[in-house]
Amino acid sequence: MTEKLKSSAQRVQDCLTQAGYDFRVKQLLASTRTAEDAAHAIGCEVAQIAKSLIFKDKNTGDAVLIVAAGHHQVDLKKIKATTPFHLSKADADFVRDKTGFAIGGVSPIAHRHPLHILLDEDLKNYASIWAAAGTPNAVFELNAEILAQLTQGQWLSIH
């Protein structure tokens, strides 16, 4: 683990601190770019990784963040049937513009602009989950209840 946080990771740490939580962003030497990489670097199950996926709503052009358990694929047809969103894949420029983070380091918090946020209800099955913290090797540990408090996201089945 490295000491000084990169600016994007520091933004996440500042958001956590300002929200009154004492969680600490950790910068690991190994990559956490994918859920599998993160689970290996942290030493947890892939399902405990809260991966942040940004989509673009075809109806409005808004960014939609889905925070999914690391072992799940998002079922876009199910999302369309259960929400007002019609999602498409977002490109790297859209992700960076809307969140302030690069793909592979998108945090569920501390975004540049407000986002619509959907949370994978399966994350509630774990006492501890890990989320990206602004860079491809920064993470922080929390639980599903606090994830919901921090993001004000909507719980649903995403797969």
Rank of each mutant, 00 (worst) to 15 (best):
A131N: 06
P84T: 06
H159E: 15
Q48W: 05
H116L: 08
F101H: 07
H116Y: 07
Q10G: 06
P84F: 03
R96H: 15
Q149L: 14
A47F: 00
L87I: 08
H71P: 10
L87C: 06
A9V: 03
G105C: 09
W130I: 12
D62G: 03
W130C: 12
K124W: 02
I54K: 01
R112I: 10
T2G: 14
D75F: 08
A102Y: 05
E141S: 15
S107H: 01
A110I: 03
I103E: 02
K77H: 09
L53V: 12
Q154S: 15
K124P: 03
F85M: 08
L123M: 07
S8Q: 09
I42M: 03
A92I: 08
K58L: 13
K4D: 07
G43N: 05
R112Y: 06
Q27N: 09
Y21N: 08
F85C: 07
T151Y: 00
L150S: 04
A132T: 10
I117Y: 02
G100I: 04
Q73D: 10
T151F: 02
I54Q: 01
K124T: 14
F140D: 01
E145G: 15
A39K: 03
L115P: 02
H72K: 10
F85G: 05
D91R: 03
Q18T: 15
A90C: 12
I129F: 03
A39H: 06
N137C: 15
A144P: 06
T60D: 12
P136S: 12
G61F: 04
L5S: 03
E45W: 00
S107V: 05
S107Q: 07
V12W: 00
L28D: 04
H40K: 14
P84I: 05
F101W: 04
L118Q: 00
D122Q: 15
R112N: 14
D93L: 14
V67R: 05
S88M: 13
A41P: 07
L53M: 12
K89W: 04
T82Q: 10
M1P: 11
A19S: 14
K51L: 07
H111V: 10
G70L: 09
T17Y: 03
E45A: 11
G104A: 15
S88K: 10
L29A: 14
L123Y: 02
G100H: 05
W130N: 08
A30M: 11
I117A: 05
D14Q: 12
P114V: 11
S52E: 02
S8K: 07
V46M: 01
L115E: 08
Y126G: 12
A39M: 03
A133W: 00
R11C: 04
N125G: 13
A9P: 01
R11V: 06
Q48C: 10
A41I: 09
T135F: 04
H40L: 15
W155V: 11
L53H: 01
